[in-house]
Every structure is written in structure tokens, then in C-alpha cells.
């Protein structure tokens, strides 16, 4: 019975919290967002299952993490420098069908990764068919065909 109540309380609490935080909060845009989601899961889980763990302590920890995320998103909105510092910048890895070897080497991306993204997103199977490929801030590769 207690587990049902605790789980329900936490469910509605998290639902309200993430509605308040906005659509882009922890939308798995960057690797860090994914890490943060795991951490929140680790914090919230014991509060449901373990009788000794405090629901309030879990709520405090989760609100702190989400609050920091919302706060930093507001800071990033007002400062491009901080935005770039915290989330990085997109990097062009292929231009006019030609791979930028240095960028790919530094970002640890190879031509197979680019071609896989090109096949999956655009149905392209040749490097020459790519106008631009960009390694996005979240680690995905966007492909624009010629």
C-alpha cells in the first residue's frame, strides 16, 4: 500500500515538475541531458521502493537538478558564449561531398558514421550526394543532400 502511495505521489510530482520546466528540459538534446535523466532516475527510484528513503529528500534532489537545468537554459539563452561553452558548437564534417578529415579526426567521426546517417535520414549512399553533414551538439549527424 505504501509503495503505491509513494509511487503515485512521485509520479504526479515529476509530471508537474517536468510540465513546469518546459518542453525542452532534458529532451535528450545533449549527452549531458541523458546523463542527468539517469541520475534523476537513480535518485527517485529508492524513494519509491525503500521504506527508509525520504520522499522529501528525493524531491529536493530532483528539483535541484531540474531547477539547475532550467536556470542554465535561461543563462544560455542570454549569453551565446556560455551556451557554446556548456553545449559546444555544431561542426561541419562534410562539405560539398568532401569530408573534412581534420574535423572528423578531432570529433572521432569516420566516413562510415556519416554514410550511416546519410542512409538512415536521407536514403543517400554516396559521400558525393551530400551537400553538408554536420555533427550536431547532441552527437547526431545531420545530412543535407545536394
Amino acid at each position: 500500500m505504501e509503495i503505491v502511495v509513494r509511487a503515485a505521489v512521485l509520479y504526479f510530482f515529476l509530471l508537474l515538475l517536468f510540465r513546469a520546466a518546459g518542453k525542452r528540459t532534458l529532451a535528450q538534446i545533449t549527452v549531458f541531458d541523458v546523463v542527468l535523466l539517469f541520475v534523476i532516475g537513480e535518485v527517485a527510484g529508492p524513494a519509491i521502493l525503500a521504506g527508509e528513503a525520504s520522499l522529501t529528500a528525493a524531491a529536493l534532489a530532483v528539483v535541484t537538478l531540474v531547477g539547475l537545468d532550467v536556470g542554465l537554459s535561461l543563462v544560455k539563452r542570454s549569453s551565446k558564449t556560455i551556451d557554446r561553452l556548456l553545449d559546444g558548437v555544431p561542426v561541419v564534417v562534410v562539405k560539398d561531398g568532401r569530408p573534412d578529415r581534420e574535423a572528423m579526426h578531432r570529433e572521432r567521426v569516420d566516413t562510415d558514421d556519416v554514410l550511416a546517417a546519410a542512409r538512415q535520414s536521407r536514403g543517400l549512399d554516396r559521400m558525393e550526394a551530400i551537400e553538408v553533414a554536420v555533427l550536431e551538439r547532441g552527437g547526431q549527424i545531420s545530412v543535407i543532400p545536394r
Binding site: R19, A20, A21, G22, T56, L60, V63, V66
Partner: peptide
């Protein structure tokens, strides 16, 4: 508007926690 209100609540909750309202 709801999100702004919710975010204000998050900030108030954290401020309350920092001054010790939750221990």
C-alpha cells in the same frame, strides 16, 4: 504562463530548501 508560474515555484522551492525549510 503556466510554465513561468511553475518555474517560479521551482525557484521558491529551492530558495526555501536553501534557507532550511526542509531541514
Amino acid at each position: 504562463s503556466g510554465e513561468r508560474l511553475g518555474q517560479a515555484c521551482i525557484a521558491a522551492f529551492l530558495a526555501a530548501a536553501l534557507v532550511g525549510v526542509f531541514g
